[in-house]
């Protein structure tokens, strides 16, 4: 929320967008938010064989204050949900969320009383990573895709425009559980 928000759209804004996107994507600090099995694969990603440090991201921050990417690795229970939200709120913006694994994305195979059916009920998710657990290579792939997304982020009035469009589309969309067809 700095000067870039005040810039009029045009060549100046797009240049700043490119520069800011490049800087942001290359200095991403993940917060360690390991919950379950997926967290073990997340740890494996940082170790020698998969070596996340090739992307400059091997150091997971213990404190959300120092991080701007939250990798939600594992199943989120109803008891843990408020904690997740609090930690997300403590992270300084701009921040991103990666839902790692089937459980974080949708509740996975645990369609029951204990598990939140997807962390997008609690926090906005930028990228979903399927798999149970996803292989370390898949996590790296998701992170690279997220990098691309970050470097393409729009700012200022361009961003406001996109937000308006996305919100309009979301309001018009039908909730998933109301969609019929196919079998029903």
């Amino acid at each position: 929320m700095g000067l870039e928000e005040k810039l009029p759209s045009g060549i100046m804004l797009t240049t700043v967008e490119k520069l800011a996107g490049y800087i942001r994507k290359t200095s991403l600090w993940p917060a360690s938010f390991g919950l379950a099995c997926c967290a073990i694969e997340m740890m494996a990603t940082t170790t020698a064989k998969y070596d996340l440090s090739r992307f400059g991201m091997e150091v997971f921050r213990g404190s959300p204050r120092q991080a701007d990417l939250m990798i939600v690795a594992g199943r989120l229970s109803n008891k843990m949900a408020p904690v997740l939200r609090q930690i997300y709120d403590q992270m300084a913006g701009p921040k991103w969320v990666l839902a790692m694994g089937a459980c974080a994305s949708s509740g996975g195979m645990f369609n029951n009383y204990a598990i939140v059916q997807g962390v997008d009920h609690i926090v906005p998710v930028d990228i979903y990573l399927p798999g149970c657990p996803p292989r370390p290579e898949m996590l790296i792939d998701a992170i690279i895709k997220l990098h691309e997304q970050i470097s393409d982020t729009k700012l200022g009035s361009n961003r406001a425009q996109i937000i308006r469009e996305v919100e309009a589309a979301a309001l018009a969309a039908k909730p998933v559980h109301q969609i019929t067809g196919l079998l029903a």
Partner: peptide, 22 residues
């Protein structure tokens, strides 16, 4: 006690019970 279908209180929306899903 049902398997699922417990309302998620953080979103304003409800999650239908698994047996009710499409």
């Amino acid at each position: 006690y049902p398997l699922g279908g417990i309302p998620v209180e953080f979103h304003g929306a409800t999650v239908p019970a698994p047996s009710e899903r499409r």
